[in-house]
Nucleic acid binder design. Structure first.
Lengths: 187, 187
DNA sequence: CAAAAAATTTTACAAATGATAAAAAACAAA
DNA sequence: TTTGTTTTTTATCATTTGTAAAATTTTTTG
């Protein structure tokens, strides 16, 4: 996925502003298993995914909890870090070899302060992330695990072939064993 | 809670921009049970809560699902509507008599387009909402209902006295019966 | 205050999910 | 292929949560 397409997808940008963004973006590749971000750090970079899949997860008593998958076209930020400048609570790792567009968070801050189109573009970007998160929260609250699994299958069917089931289970808020039962029931 | 305090809380604003915002804000009161927003509409207004409590909820098979409480100082928007201009998926109603600061969404859009400080203020506002939502999502995924109840009690203890338990239960993602059991266990 | 309505708790039973261990299947490296 | 490792499934039992109905408490209304 090309960078122009990704940037435009969040919100239209005047050519000049888009070029200002692109001038601060470079390309980078990481192998599977690379840690893009770590809990407790104030992250200096953010990424847009050109290809590949990543996951964000938090540490918990019973192992880690995957709460987000990022795929082609998605933005990768440590939200807490990005929004408040405070240490983030998530690890983010690549689940496949990834091609990423990278940008320094500080460069983006400077653009926000000086270019109103980019400031509004950033506002829309966060807004879209919020909607997605809110919709997931609602579905966690009132749908059964089986419904959530079926939703995920119809929304991003390829995810199941590209990601381990233990991560899918964690993402759905259930154990891997429970996910196996659900899959058996559906068959 | 005064409007200046509320506005500044999200992000500092130069006096000129703050006055521009305030010039478009008026005050309004509604009794308990008033519907501020409705599913399926593109909402034209947004609010800041001077006093009182409101809840946002979605329709579901088994009744409604409360997924957000707003209290003094919080912003009240139909997120989908506000972010994307598309019909929202939530109802929002007052749970107490409320004093609100109100503003036309279109006025805010115009300020976003013309005042970079307000655009960045709006970006920070949405970002803070995103963090809160993401933290709730994570706690839904890896905490037990009892832990979530205890968290809520320590975070906003007054909520329990001001809001019906059926709404608290729904907010926690459990039934009212289950919440009753948890409360009995704690005693 | 008394009656009615609403909200909350309790009880009993059913269904879903979790924990653990072990077996089966899929995958990777030599 | 063969071996060894990882991933997924299956089976068992304990725990949690849901559903429905009744009992209790609290609030509202006359």
């Amino acid at each position: 996925m090309e960078i122009d397409e990704i940037l435009e997808h969040f919100h239209p940008l005047p050519p000049q502003s888009r070029e200002a963004l692109k001038a601060r973006i470079s390309e980078v590749r990481y192998p599977k298993g690379h840690m893009l971000m770590r809990t407790g750090r104030v992250e200096k970079m953010l990424y847009f995914i050109r290809s590949g899949i990543v996951r964000a997860y938090s540490d918990a008593d019973r192992g880690d909890v995957t709460f987000w998958f990022g795929k082609e076209g998605d933005v990768v930020v440590s939200m807490k870090s990005y929004v408040s400048g405070q240490p983030g609570y998530e690890h983010i790792e690549t689940l496949e070899a990834c091609e990423l567009y990278q940008m320094r968070a500080q460069d983006l801050e400077e653009l926000f302060a000086n270019d109103i189109h980019i400031a509004n573009w950033g506002r829309k970007l966060i807004g879209q992330e919020l909607i997605k998160t809110e919709e997931r929260l609602i579905s966690m609250q009132f749908k059964t695990a089986q419904e959530r699994y079926l939703d995920l299958m119809s929304a991003t069917p390829d995810l199941l072939h590209r990601v381990q089931l233990c991560h899918i289970a964690s993402f759905l808020g259930i154990t891997q064993v429970s996910l196996s039962r659900i899959r058996a029931d559906i068959r």
